[in-house]
Simulated scan of single mutants.
Amino acid sequence: MLDAAQRLVERAGGLSVNLENLSYPDILKEAGVARTSVYREWKTKEDFYVDLLCDLAGPSWQGTAAFDEKTIKIARDIVADRVAELQEPAGREQLLRDVVRVAAQQNFDALMSSTAWRTYVALSATVMGLPDADSRQRVLAALQEAERTFIRNMAEFYADMATVLGFRLRAHAKSFDVVAAAGASVVEGMGLRRLLAPELVDRPLDVEGPHGAEQWHLAAFSYWTILQGMIEADPDYDYAKALATYLKRLAQRELAAGVH
Rank of each mutant, 00 (worst) to 15 (best):
E46L: 12
A57E: 00
V99L: 09
R40W: 04
G58V: 07
A182H: 02
V207F: 05
E10D: 15
L165A: 03
N153Q: 15
R203L: 06
E20F: 11
D77M: 03
V201S: 01
E30L: 11
F108I: 03
W61G: 02
V127D: 00
A182I: 12
H217E: 00
Y237P: 12
A133W: 07
R193N: 10
P89G: 07
A184I: 09
V38K: 00
E156N: 14
C54T: 12
P59T: 09
R7G: 05
R152S: 12
N107Y: 08
G212V: 04
L250E: 02
H260Q: 07
A31M: 01
E88L: 04
L28Q: 14
A155V: 13
Y49F: 15
D109S: 10
A213K: 12
G212K: 02
D238Q: 15
M154C: 01
N153L: 13
I231H: 00
L56R: 12
S222V: 07
W117M: 10
L22M: 05
A256Q: 07
D177P: 02
G13L: 06
R35I: 14
L140W: 13
E20G: 11
R138W: 05
D238L: 13
G229Y: 05
Y120N: 08
M1N: 08
G63Y: 09
D132Q: 11
P198C: 03
M154A: 02
R76N: 13
F176L: 04
G129A: 08
L143E: 09
V179H: 06
T163I: 08
V186P: 05
P210L: 13
A57L: 02
Q105K: 10
G63W: 07
V99M: 08
Q106E: 08
I72M: 06
G63I: 13
A12H: 15
F176S: 02
G189T: 11
M161H: 04
A219D: 10
L52D: 02
A133C: 01
F67C: 00
Q62V: 06
L56A: 15
E214K: 03
L255H: 04
I151S: 03
K73T: 13
G91L: 11
F150Q: 13
L227M: 15
V187L: 15
Y237H: 06
D238V: 12
K43Q: 15
T225Q: 07
I231W: 01
L22F: 07
V127Q: 10
R118T: 08
E88D: 13
R35S: 15
V50T: 14
A103K: 02
V207G: 07
G209F: 04
Q252N: 08
Y39S: 05
V186S: 06
Y24K: 05
Y39I: 01
A244G: 04
R253M: 05
A242E: 06
Y237F: 15
A57G: 01
Q6T: 14
D77H: 02
K70L: 12
G32S: 11
T126N: 10
L19R: 09
E85H: 08
W224G: 01
I226Y: 04
G209Q: 04
R136A: 09
T245I: 10
A257L: 03
